[in-house]
Design a protein around this nucleic acid. Structure first.
Lengths: 197, 197
DNA sequence: GTCTATAGATCGATAGAC
DNA sequence: GTCTATCGATCTATAGAC
């Protein structure tokens, strides 16, 4: 039976975060009101403040959670081995992970400027950690003679930009499966960073 | 002599557009108020409405102007020739053009969702025109046997994402000149779309 | 063409009843 | 834990004086 009032602390919290994620991704943090979020969840605006101290924390917690998930998942997926094998694993991991949570990815890239300074610094540090993971692979590849780029930092940023771009056009149920997309991108990544013929 | 009041129609208009571009890029369209824009220009908020019918037109006109400039500049830079030469020209053009106007580029990528439907469709069509220009080059390259990608549309989007990513990290006066950056990216673009060794 | 002043709406956040 | 009600600030856009 659907209660219209009462205590729902265990389910309202997650529903608020889900609604905020969906609305922030769709319309942007600054354009979304607390009343809109509350309306999506089916409560009044005042009730949100039982779960978050303010709107900023809603955004900051979403981004923090996303970056934590990303780093933990990559650390679980990475394994020692030849650099080109690790690079292929990174490519397929990055595409799969990002295609599974388009809203969180969109927020992570678009709403950095709406973070208060302290939150911004914390999130940015996590992003750098992730980039450093890829750069370490490219450095290893250069040591092994398979990777040929004049600057591993720039190559890191170029590869991540290319891969994350998938999210701007990929739609589930489209012409290509996520695996086919990953195959195509792995070929391009490999060509971009390996020795010219 | 600095007049604090009076008629400035010929200079106030451009200054409003410049202030809006700067502020929209810095804080986001939804987070910037007409009062902030007016304050930057040195007039009161009401005076803005002598130059724009509303805030939305300010955004829409900025993005339209940027896309018009981009398409006109590329049409002027493109020339017939082997696909790989045209592709190198595209790469260097794209990086140079985008690094010269980081605020307009940032707005063009971040504020699409704040366009009203009609404006959105018009701007999106211009973006597709630009993408089609690159895809035509990749098709030509495939016909000539120099380009090897399974899908020219995906390769188009991948290349543009990689190149536009330069704007997220490049700062004038940094370690590398814009030309050195273009050299590095051209090598990666070439490797990504040409035949594997 | 810019000003002052304001209409009318909406915002984030809080107070207190239940 | 959610509600209703509201405070005080801020927003876009307009009206009318100069």
């Amino acid at each position: 039976m659907a209660r219209t009032q009462g205590s729902h602390s265990d389910i309202t919290g997650p529903r608020i975060r889900a609604a905020a994620e969906r609305l922030f991704a769709r319309h942007g943090y600054a354009a979304v009101s607390m009343r809109q979020i509350a309306s999506e969840v089916g409560v009044q605006a005042g009730a949100l403040y039982n779960y978050t101290p303010d709107k900023q924390s809603l955004l900051s917690d979403l981004m923090q959670g996303h970056m934590d998930d990303l780093l933990a998942a990559w650390r679980a997926a990475d394994r020692p081995g030849p650099a080109l094998e690790r690079l292929e694993r990174f490519t397929r991991f990055h595409i799969a992970f990002h295609l599974e949570r388009p809203d969180a990815v969109f927020i992570a890239y678009m709403e950095l400027r709406n973070l208060e300074p302290e939150n911004f610094r914390r999130i940015e540090a996590l992003r750098r950690d992730y980039e450093d993971g890829l750069e370490a692979i490219l450095r290893q590849g250069r040591d092994e003679g398979d990777v040929s780029v004049p600057d591993t930092k720039i190559a890191t940023l170029a590869v991540i930009a290319m891969l994350t771009g998938v999210n701007t056009w990929y739609r589930a149920g489209g012409r290509l499966s996520a695996t086919e997309v990953a195959d195509i991108y792995w070929n391009m990544v490999r060509g971009a960073v390996t020795l010219p013929r």
